[in-house]
């Protein structure tokens, strides 16, 4: 985990405006995500949380006005689990499409344990439940080198133990100088200052 100078901005947004189907979701939104910060995006369904996350990640490059710049490629965990049914959990992670570097075997093992999937490493993923699919996806949190994490509703379909494990991992990442943007309806129990960005009134606190 490379420690970055606290305060170095990992992603910048300047007067971002987005309209969907004629309705203006938000406009002239400007903020910067610095290292060591934990952001929580709030807003009702359809307030544009996922769209904003995708714009931040660079997945959506058109259809909005304003400037978005980011220091490096972030880790994006979206609604879809990005897990191939044919592969086993281990193969999914070792060959993961976005993972440029190849992880050593014990790293993968250790990551799968942290997500509570020990013993399931080699079963083909189509035998796993949806919740386990998401855990395989979230195991990437323990492997990824990216400093900026964009997590879209990470806690859905995860049981209580898993949620606390993830929140502890997020806290650790932020403490080590990473930055995390989370969209979730549940409050975050993390011993760290949480910046709230509510899209309903486009207020930043």
């Amino acid at each position: 985990m490379t420690d970055s100078a606290v305060g170095e901005s990992l992603a910048e947004v300047k007067d971002l405006g987005l309209a969907r189907g004629g309705r203006v979701l938000f406009e002239s939104l400007s903020f910067a995500i610095r290292a060591g910060e934990l952001w929580q995006l709030e807003g009702g369904n359809g307030a544009g949380k996922t769209s904003l996350l995708r714009i931040l990640a660079g997945l959506s490059r058109y259809g909005f006005d304003g400037l978005v710049s980011r220091a490096e490629v972030p880790l994006y965990v979206g609604h879809q689990a990005a897990v191939k049914g044919l592969f086993s959990a281990r193969e999914n992670l070792s060959w993961h499409v976005s993972g440029g570097c190849v992880f050593a075997d014990e790293q993968i093992e250790q990551a799968l344990q942290r997500v509570g999937l020990c013993g399931f490493e080699d079963t083909p993923s189509h035998a796993l439940s949806a919740g386990q699919h998401r855990r395989v996806n979230l195991a990437r949190l323990f492997l990824s080198e990216a400093r900026l994490w964009l997590l879209d509703e990470p806690f859905t379909a995860i049981d209580a133990a898993g949620v606390s494990e993830l929140q502890e991992r997020i806290g650790g990442h932020v403490a080590r100088g990473g930055a995390v943007v989370v969209t979730s309806h549940q409050p975050l129990h993390v011993d760290h200052t949480v910046h709230h960005l509510s899209l309903d009134g486009a207020r930043i606190s």
Binding site: G58, P74, Y76, Q80, A82, K84, V97, S98
Partner: peptide, 22 residues
Amino acid sequence: RSDFDDGSLEQLLLAPQPLYLS
């Protein structure tokens, strides 16, 4: 199509290596 449906195509776009090679 199969990668698009389960979301791994999105990850492909975020991969560090250039999209051309992927």
